[in-house]
Design a protein around this nucleic acid. Structure first.
Length: 667
DNA sequence: GACTAACGTTTTTTT
DNA sequence: AACGTTAGTC
């Protein structure tokens, strides 16, 4: 079976990468240099060299990236080979490692994975319980400190702040007692099991002899340690990334993993992909001139394969209203003039809050658009609730999901009862569920609460039996449970609009539906819960199929490309963001802008405003200091007035009257 | 225990 | 401006 790639279709650096199969390899792949193609060809080449597909492991950062890579590889090699190799995220790899041997670390094998909202719920409780500290601390603050510590390889109990350390210890004890792990624990424990248990380590080293890590600039210290455990001599490991596109330092990514790769694996071959096939020379020159202001990088200069191109425009705007109007008008005009599709346009911004006015301007002109990212499916309340019920059916001793749905819908088990049950469970070293089942506990409740608790216990236990004893389909049971407790009517009562009602309904339905699909594949409830804990699973993928212009944050834009890009809000305080200046991470903001610029294939327009409405207040803005760093050769500095110079008076009049109307109509 | 009113907050996002 | 959270009331 010949794989369908040829060395002829690759450039010199790509060929070298594809040809270098042995020993440590670091592939520095600049934006738009054919990274994915090179990696997939390299894997196809392995198969050609008779390396067994089952020994090949490719690790990515997100589920989306994993499925994309799987698809790309699938298009190049035999179907058999494609299914035999392992392409997954760090976290799902860790679940595999742990489901096999977590008992060696004293956990039970049926451990559950708590989601972010589970974590927040638990931390809220702990903050109340340990509420010694007078200052108000937010759960997220503590959790992110714990997460950062874990990802740095530090014991959260050793956090500098004593109060945080106490909370961290309590948190860890709590989830440990529930036989649960959080996302970070997956990595921590998998690394530990490989490090401490030579037999497990050897099993995996023999299982996976060829390891590829994608988006390596996003890996943190812990992931590096895990990789080192996973890859033994002769170190057939290939890491692929671009330090210039490292924009996730704020959540623990270590550029040092790239910058000091030699420290981790001996004598690596370092290959640079610098030939860019995406952007015009104008765009690339501008990008290069910006990024060279960063210190301590693996220097690369992207070379354009496309010469010339329209100059990059920097447009000064009077205010954010005009910015939005201008871009919407340009999109309308351009689409007509040069026959573009809506999908060819993208508007990039630093913060989600900046999208509102852009959306309005597009909607006014009936320009279809898609918002990428925004609030995610898995954090939607009804989704979390239904998943919590599913978790209870698998293991009712999991306190977090139990407490979550104890009174959702309201069934007369309020906070006071919940606190009593939690206290009782702590005293008796049992789960909250066991407390609720224990007559000794329910006897101390009022008659009303006691019967509510008994009914709840009976409902859950009954449903659980239907799965475990009557062997009914888990999705059917979950569906009828949700129906029986009248969950949907309850959640709908809290909705203000019909579309919200519909959305909630769809959320509930889609959880049950995806459980059904899962069980139809012969997988059990636990495997479904693992999957939905790890998959951000915004239902049926955030669809590249959605039509329209793209509105997206700079962060979310990494890895994408668009023919025509508008990059808004190049203002000091937004880009670079005030907070990053305070934290001394301006370099990362520069990389963020670099990522934004390199998304553009044909045309790039960057805008900044003189004033902007921020939190309901008009504030003055200064142009971003990054603008001054750009080389002028392919730049065109202009302004809103200059571009609309044809009829400046009309527009100004319109604004004037618009403002007047606002004043009059505002009372 | 449920509902309402005042209050405070507001970068980026995945697993 | 808009949202979620919390405190206070019925």
């Amino acid at each position: 079976m010949a794989s369908s790639f040829s060395f002829d279709s690759l450039n010199k650096a790509q060929r070298e990468a594809v040809g270098s199969l042995d020993g440590p390899v670091m592939l520095l792949a600049g934006a738009g240099t054919g990274k994915t193609r090179t990696v997939t060809c390299r894997i196809a080449h392995m198969l050609e060299k008779r390396i067994a597909a089952s020994e090949i492991l490719a690790v990515t950062f997100t589920n989306k990236a994993a499925s994309e890579m799987r698809e790309r590889i699938g298009g190049m090699v035999s179907k058999k080979a494609a299914t035999e190799m392992t392409v997954c995220t760090f976290h799902s790899l860790c679940v595999r490692i742990l489901r096999g041997g977590i008992d060696k670390l004293g956990y039970k094998k049926n451990f559950s994975i708590c989601s972010h909202s589970d974590q927040v719920g638990l931390m809220k409780q702990l903050l109340v319980r340990k509420g010694g500290s007078s200052e108000k601390v937010k759960p997220d603050e503590v959790l992110s400190a714990i997460s950062k510590a874990k990802n740095k390889g530090i014991d959260p109990g050793d956090l500098e702040d004593d109060y945080f350390a106490t909370l961290a210890v309590a948190y860890q004890n709590e989830i440990r007692a529930q036989n649960a792990v959080d996302f970070d624990d997956l990595l921590v424990l998998a690394e530990r099991i490989l490090r401490e248990h030579a037999d497990v380590r050897e099993t995996f080293r023999q299982r996976f002899t060829r390891v590829t890590v994608d988006e390596f600039q996003d890996t943190n210290a812990l992931q590096m340690q895990l990789l080192q455990q996973l890859v033994g001599p002769p170190y057939h490991v290939c890491v692929v990334g671009d330090d210039d596109q490292s924009i996730y330092g704020w959540r623990g990514a270590e550029v040092a993993n790239i910058l000091q790769f030699e420290k981790f694996f001996p004598d690596p071959k370092i290959i640079r992909l610098e030939e860019n096939y995406r952007s015009t020379q104008a765009v690339l020159h501008t990008a290069n001139s910006l990024i060279k202001h960063n210190r301590g990088r693996r220097e690369k200069i992207l070379r354009a394969t496309r010469t010339g191109g329209d100059p990059v425009r920097i447009v000064a705007m009077p205010g954010d209203d005009q910015e939005a109007e201008f871009i919407a008008e340009e999109i309308m005009a351009e689409k007509g003039a040069i026959g573009r599709e809506w999908e060819d346009f993208a508007i990039l911004f630093r913060t989600n809050g900046q999208s509102r006015k852009l959306e309005l301007a597009l909607r006014e002109r009936k320009i279809p658009y898609r918002m990428v990212g925004a609030q995610s499916f898995y954090d939607r309340r009804e989704v979390r609730d239904v998943l919590a019920y599913a978790q209870l059916l698998a293991s009712p001793d999991a306190d977090v999901p139990l407490l979550r749905v104890l009174n959702a819908p309201n069934r007369g088990i309020g906070q006071s009862t919940a606190v009593l049950a939690t206290d009782w469970s702590r005293e008796h070293h049992e789960s909250v569920w066991q407390a609720l089942c224990d007559p000794n506990f329910t006897d101390q409740l009022g008659a009303k609460s006691a019967s509510a608790v008994q009914e709840f216990v009976a409902t859950i236990a009954g449903a659980k039996n239907r799965i475990e004893i009557a062997r009914e389909n888990a999705a059917d049971v979950l569906g009828s449970l949700i129906k029986a407790i009248e969950y949907l009517p309850w959640i709908e009562r809290g909705c203000k609009t019909d579309s919200e009602k519909q959305q909630r309904g769809e959320g509930v339905f889609s959880v049950i539906d995806s459980l059904r699909k899962h069980t139809e594949k012969g997988k059990n409830l636990q495997s479904f819960l693992d999957h939905s804990a790890l998959a951000s699973d915004r239902e049926d993928d955030d669809l590249e199929k959605k039509q329209g212009a793209t509105l997206i944050t700079l962060h979310a834009s990494k890895g994408l490309e668009f023919p025509i890009v508008f990059l808004v809000g190049l203002e000091e305080g937004f880009l670079p963001h005030t907070r990053s200046i305070a934290e001394g991470t301006k370099d990362e903001e520069r990389r963020l802008l670099y990522v934004g610029i390199t998304r553009a294939k044909d045309q790039l327009t960057m805008t900044y405003c003189a004033t902007r409405i921020k939190w309901g207040q008009e504030t003055g803005c200064q142009p971003s200091s990054f603008i001054g760093e750009l080389d002028d050769e392919f730049l065109n500095h202009t302004s809103y007035d200059e571009i609309l110079g044809a009829e400046p008076s009309t527009d100004e009049l319109e604004n004037f009257f618009g403002g007047l109307k606002g004043l009059l109509g505002d009372t």
